[in-house]
Amino acid sequence: MNIFRFAGDMTHLASVLVLLLKIHTIKSCAGVSLKTQELYAIVFATRYLDIFTDFISLYNTFMKLVFLGSSFSIVWYMRSHKIVRRSYDKDQDTFRHYFLIVPCLLLAMIINEKFTFREVLWTFSLFLEAVAILPQLVLLQRTRNIDNLTGQYIFLLGAYRAFYIFNWIYRYFTEPHYVHWIPWIAGLLQTLLYGDFFYYYFHSWKNNKKLQLPA
């Protein structure tokens, strides 16, 4: 464990807790893309298949349970909670996220470190995580505005993956033979995808005005 990875995990934890807390507190999910939340639930479900078979550390197992629990809770709130579901804007959240799942699955069948069921799903979860934010960014473009909590959610998500990149650099230089191109490339792509959002988020924060994403 290194400071970058710990900072990344804490930022990631903060992003899901910020979102869960917002939805639980104000009983509204306005501006949040259910598609992105469903994709994240799939990401965690396919990445943590080894949660009961391979024990790495209490921290690792605890965090996996928190991420699984929070992502599925958010999906449950948005789909089934009688009050929250009313604020879900399904007419705007129309990104066909299955168009992301199939290519990621096919790509994971081709590019992976080992062609086993768990390894392919683990690789699939990395590719899917890289693009999972797309429905949320599309929804923001459509609704043109972003309330602070959703902005913080996306900002924290982007920051978590940026911290992980520093973690991979650190591990590359400190651990011999630590080379894993797949998570590195997927993680870099994911961080770049947040790039333009960061640009607009920073400028709106600096000029202290509501975030206006370009159409």
């Binding site: 990875r5 391979d54 790495i56 690792n60 965090m63 630590y178 998570p183």
Partner: peptide, 10 residues
Amino acid sequence: SPKQSSHDEL
């Protein structure tokens, strides 16, 4: 078998 190092991350 030693846990694959890339799978020890979240």
